[in-house]
Design a protein around this nucleic acid. Structure first.
Length: 404
RNA sequence: GCCGGGGUACCGAAGCGGCCAAACGGGACGGACUGUAAAUCCGUUGGCCUUUGCGCCUACGGGGGUUCAAAUCCCUCCCCCGGCACCA
């Protein structure tokens, strides 16, 4: 692959960037790389506790891909060491401890997803235990001496917690240092991260310098993007995310239900669509374009077309979906006259029979398009009976042959 | 170690002897409305019973006790939080 000229690289790399600290260093490094034919090492830290990549993280990975496309090397650093230690004080619930086996399983999965975005030929995948494991206490003290408490307290949440008397364990101070040391270990030229990583990236820059290395450029590739609820940041733990490996229809559907206020942000940061051109469209169409673009990115154009069509079919035209899960009914619940009690029928689709009854009472259940109003009735059963529970849970029923 | 405050449903949080399957808020789910929007409104939100009943079972950190009756009182254990002390 040919390495693009400087202007082209800058255009591609700077596109959508939130902040580049400092931009002049980036230009310098790019120039030098071009001159010496030595690609830049572009680092991105990966948290092995959550193996699922969602589309907000995808934005950062996409940026990493941009660097790759300019001929540079992406270095993914798996924070396995830190994840294994966790936070022994147990203060931060986010930091759960993991075994090495869990981490490796997570990372196999992660890598698979990351390769939907990244170019494997310019990718380095490293575990930070490689260097942190062998770090003894003396080396840790040396590292720790290169940063000050005052500088640590510049991080907003530290400052706030310190002032309000909320405990901050020393370990928490050590995490940014560990991450910074990763940059030293792999000699990062650039470190990428979301807005939430700004402080940590800057620590890396400072530590490299104090270790006699050329400091990395801190590249803020994305703002903290809100999740589907439009309020909290997108995160697996809030359940407001879209995973990049989710099926096309899921991704499409989730994106169609975001609040309007989010459309512009998602379009701007997650797609290459031109917002100026979408601005005047009806919000529904904007969302459809957005959803289509994202499904296309993580699946394919054909999948995106199909998802769009499916969406129109099920939700706009209220027809049955192209594919419906099949549920097999136990023969024993069938009465001699060929009918089944509705609750018995619905129960496999719900958590409990009580819930099944509740849903029926609430008018959430349709059989072959006919609403069931009461939970004390029997219905005639036939193979292929179509049941709809709520807005989008469909199932087709068949009889399970079974000999007692 | 000492002192004080806590552990209640998916989460936050009331209740502090009976009227508690547990107020209220959030979430989730369902319905109406729509653009499957969002917002709003209404409803549901432990399980079981084709008996729907002032029904039965399970549930207020674990265990034991007092009482006709406990989430509520007593004992004990576990865990969390804050303050103070100590600091090799």
């Amino acid at each position: 692959m040919k390495v693009p000229p400087l202007e082209e690289q800058l255009r591609l790399i700077k596109r959508r960037a939130v902040d580049i600290i400092p931009e002049s260093d980036l230009v310098k490094k790019l120039e030098r790389a071009l001159r010496t034919q030595k690609p830049l090492r572009v680092k991105l830290g990966v948290d092995p506790t959550s193996p699922d990549i969602h589309i907000a993280i995808g934005v950062v990975l996409q940026k990493l891909r941009d660097f790759q496309d300019c001929g540079h090397t992406a270095v993914l650093i798996v924070g396995d060491f830190t994840a294994r230690i966790g936070d022994p004080s147990g203060r931060s619930a986010q930091r759960k401890m993991l075994s090495q086996a869990e981490i490796e399983a997570n990372m196999r999965h992660y890598k698979e997803q990351a390769l939907k975005i990244l170019d494997p030929s310019r990718l380095e995948f490293r575990y930070n235990s490689e260097w942190l494991e062998h770090m003894n206490f003396a080396k840790l003290l040396e590292l720790a001496s290169r940063y000050t408490v005052a500088a640590m307290l510049e991080r907003d949440d530290f400052a706030q917690r310190y002032q309000s008397g909320t405990p901050i364990s020393i370990v928490e101070f050590l995490y940014p240092l560990a991450q910074a040391y990763d940059s030293v270990a792999i000699q990062a030229d650039v470190e990428l991260g979301g807005e939430d990583q700004r402080f940590n990236l800057l620590v890396g820059r400072a530590i490299q310098e104090r270790c006699g290395q050329e400091p990395q450029v801190c590249f803020i590739a994305a703002p903290v993007l809100e999740g589907l609820d439009g309020v909290k940041k997108m995160s697996k733990s809030f359940g407001n995310y879209v995973g990049v490996t989710e099926p096309p229809n899921e991704i499409f559907g989730k994106l169609m239900s975001i609040p309007d206020a989010l459309i512009e942000r998602y379009v701007t940061f997650m797609t290459d669509l031109d917002w100026e051109k979408l601005k005047e469209l009806h919000p529904k169409e904007q969302k459809q374009k957005l959803a289509h673009a994202i499904v296309k990115r993580y699946h394919s154009e054909a999948a995106a077309d199909a998802a769009l069509e499916e969406f129109e079919r099920v939700f706009a035209r209220k027809e049955r979906p192209a594919e419906v899960q099949k549920v097999y009914l136990d023969k024993r619940v069938l009465k001699p006259n060929g009918t089944v009690w509705v609750v018995e029928l619905i129960a496999p689709l719900t958590k409990s029979r009580s819930e099944a009854k509740r849903l029926i009472e609430q008018g959430a259940v349709e059989l072959d398009g006919v609403k069931i109003a009461q939970d004390d009735q029997d219905v005639l059963f036939r193979d292929g009976l179509l049941i709809k529970v709520g807005k989008h849970r469909f199932a087709e029923f068949y009889l399970k042959e079974h000999s007692p």
